[in-house]
């Protein structure tokens, strides 16, 4: 769109943009739990990006004296605050480094499934021909596959690398976006403003990208946040079962699994990574709840009137 604007008008048209960002920030600050969730997620993202670069050494060097070291032992350095694992590696450092893989898998899977799923959904919802009937069948087929079993069998036959896990998880999540997008497009397509655009002579691309997509994007983003949590849990389950990420790579799910034999003697090995998983998914869910309200113009007032319960 930007290329159709004159320089003079683009200034005017662009000015609301920073206002919008500030507005969203205000809406976020209006919801205390969502604010905390957002801050926590930012910390996790920073860990995921910087952790593997800075702490890789520390997280992989084995130290027999630190085997199953208990948490909150103040005589050791900061990274030992959560204790050490079965090979004497500091748990905090390992959790920070593992954030990298965990986030990479989830981000990859969510972006891939959202892109493919919503593209297919757009096609299925927008085209009135046979394509509109056939594409949703893909979702039906994938949905009827027991998804975890699908992952299991594919990883059984292929090697369980990061990319394969991303592919498997992405495939199992495609139907979510496909169905939502299709349902929304089917509805939005019939709205009068789309008809008005057709009457003006708007091309299909213009209708899809200018009129339909902006309307359904908030829904998709809300689902994506929710799905991010789901994918993380699925990856953790796979890693926990031993068919996901393989050592020496680490993810949080794998850490829980590795700590399992020591449950009774050193509970912290499984407890901390599990807790981080919970906190991350919880934050994502809270943020998704907030987004559902904040991105919907008809619901937004709930945040604007400030602090009130939004149920």
């Amino acid at each position: 769109m930007s290329n159709t604007r004159t320089p003079a008008t683009s200034v005017k048209a662009e000015t609301p943009e920073p206002g919008k960002a500030r507005k969203m920030l205000q809406l976020l600050l209006a919801d205390k739990t969502a604010t905390i969730a957002a801050i926590f997620l930012i910390v996790i993202i920073v860990c995921a990006i910087l952790g593997p670069l800075l702490l890789d050494q520390l997280a992989t060097r084995q130290n027999l004296r630190g085997r199953n070291a208990p948490p909150f032992d103040l005589t050791r350095s900061f990274f030992w605050v959560l204790g050490g694992d079965q090979l004497g590696r500091p748990l905090l450092a390992r959790i920070i480094v593992a954030a990298g893989n965990t986030m990479a898998v989830a981000t990859g899977a969510v972006i891939a499934s959202m892109t493919i799923g919503s593209a297919l959904g757009l096609v299925a919802g927008y085209s009135r021909g046979k394509l509109g009937d056939i594409v949703p069948r893909i979702a039906d087929v994938i949905m009827s596959f027991p998804s975890l079993l699908l992952a299991v069998i594919v990883l059984y036959m292929l090697e369980p690398s990061v990319s394969n896990i991303v592919i498997v998880l992405a495939i199992t999540r495609i139907p979510v976006y496909l169905r939502t997008t299709r349902a929304e497009v089917l509805e939005v397509r019939e709205r009068m403003f789309v008809q008005a655009a057709i009457v003006m002579g708007a091309s299909h691309l213009r209708i899809i990208f200018r009129h339909i997509l902006p309307v359904i994007l908030p829904t998709l983003l809300t689902i994506a946040a929710l799905d991010f949590a789901f994918v993380m849990l699925a990856e953790s389950s796979l890693s926990f079962l031993g068919i996901g990420i393989q050592p020496p790579e680490i993810t949080w799910g794998l850490m829980v699994s590795q700590g399992r034999p020591y449950l009774t003697s050193a509970w912290w090995l499984s407890f901390w990574p599990g807790l981080v998983i919970i906190l991350t998914t919880l934050s994502l869910n809270l943020l998704s709840n907030w987004m559902r309200v904040a991105l919907d113009p008809t619901q937004r007032w709930r945040l604007e009137i400030g602090g009130k319960k939004n149920g």
Binding site: F240, G253, V256, S270, G274, I277, I278, T281, N285
Partner: peptide, 16 residues
């Protein structure tokens, strides 16, 4: 919220 956030394997081992 718990249902959507909690990894069942972790809940299971903590419960044990």
């Amino acid at each position: 919220l718990i249902g959507a956030s909690a990894p069942d394997f972790w809940i299971a081992i903590v419960a044990i």
